[in-house]
Computed example of a mutant assay.
Amino acid sequence: MDRGLVGPGADPAERGLVYGTAAAGTGLAVAAVAPAAPPLWAVALVGLVAFDLFGGAAANATAAAKRAFHAPGRTARHHLGFVAAHGQPFLLALAVPGLGWVAAAVLYALALAGAVAVTAAPGAVRRPVAFSATALALGVTTVTVDVPGELAWLAPVLFVKLLLGHLLPEESRG
């Protein structure tokens, strides 16, 4: 079964929404970075990262992804590993000169710290902890991290994808 960007068992509406968001986000990111006239490889890398982050932000909110990521046997270690694997800020630091290594490290560390806080929180407060971690990470990023304007989308989309999308299970509807 092709898992793709969405997850196993995704319905056509989920796939359409996720791939549409990925494409729109990619277009936005490429259009934002193009005026800086980076090399073609850098534009392509920004596009690939944007496709993953924008599409992943939508995908991680789908029922298909929630079933996969929060299936029985999935632990905090799995979730932290997923977050840790998202080194895209470092890739973008290679491609966009205005994003320094310290800024990339701060973004990455904020995502990891937020993930630790969310996974360590008791289930009853996991959702507000995720929103708190996201809000604080965005505040820290906005106030202290020098991110070039063409990458202004990076922190919000990264934190939404990982802290709000990936780490939160589907809420039961009662």
Rank of each mutant, 00 (worst) to 15 (best):
D2I: 12
R3M: 09
G7L: 01
P8N: 06
P8A: 09
G9W: 02
A10I: 06
E14V: 01
E14W: 00
R15L: 11
L17E: 12
G20P: 05
G20M: 06
A22K: 01
A23G: 11
A24T: 15
T26L: 12
G27Q: 13
A29K: 08
A31C: 01
A31H: 01
V33H: 04
A34D: 11
P35L: 03
P35E: 08
P35H: 00
P38Y: 03
L40D: 14
A42C: 04
A44E: 04
A44I: 10
G47S: 08
V49C: 03
A50K: 13
F51K: 07
F51Y: 14
F51G: 10
D52S: 13
F54R: 12
F54Q: 03
F54V: 11
G56V: 08
A59Q: 04
N60Q: 13
N60D: 15
T62C: 10
A64I: 07
P72L: 03
G73S: 11
G73V: 08
R74L: 00
T75C: 02
A76W: 03
A76K: 06
A76N: 13
R77V: 15
H79G: 14
L80H: 06
G81D: 11
A84G: 08
A85F: 10
A85T: 14
H86L: 11
P89Q: 11
F90C: 05
L91V: 10
A93L: 06
L94Q: 12
A95V: 09
A95N: 06
P97C: 01
V102D: 05
A103Q: 11
A103L: 10
A104M: 08
A105L: 15
V106D: 09
L107W: 01
Y108P: 05
G114A: 08
G114P: 04
A115T: 12
A115V: 13
A117L: 10
V118D: 04
V118M: 03
A120T: 08
A120I: 04
A121K: 15
G123I: 07
G123H: 10
A124M: 03
A124C: 02
R126Q: 11
R126W: 00
R127Q: 12
P128E: 10
V129S: 04
F131A: 12
A133C: 07
A135N: 13
L138E: 13
L138C: 08
L138D: 13
L138R: 01
G139Y: 03
G139Q: 08
G139A: 12
V140S: 00
T141F: 00
T141H: 02
V143D: 08
T144R: 12
V145E: 11
V147R: 00
P148M: 07
P148T: 09
P148V: 09
E150A: 06
A152H: 07
W153S: 14
A155W: 06
L158I: 14
F159A: 09
F159N: 10
L162P: 09
L164N: 14
H166G: 13
L167C: 06
P169Q: 09
E170W: 02
S172W: 04
S172T: 15
S172V: 15
G174V: 14
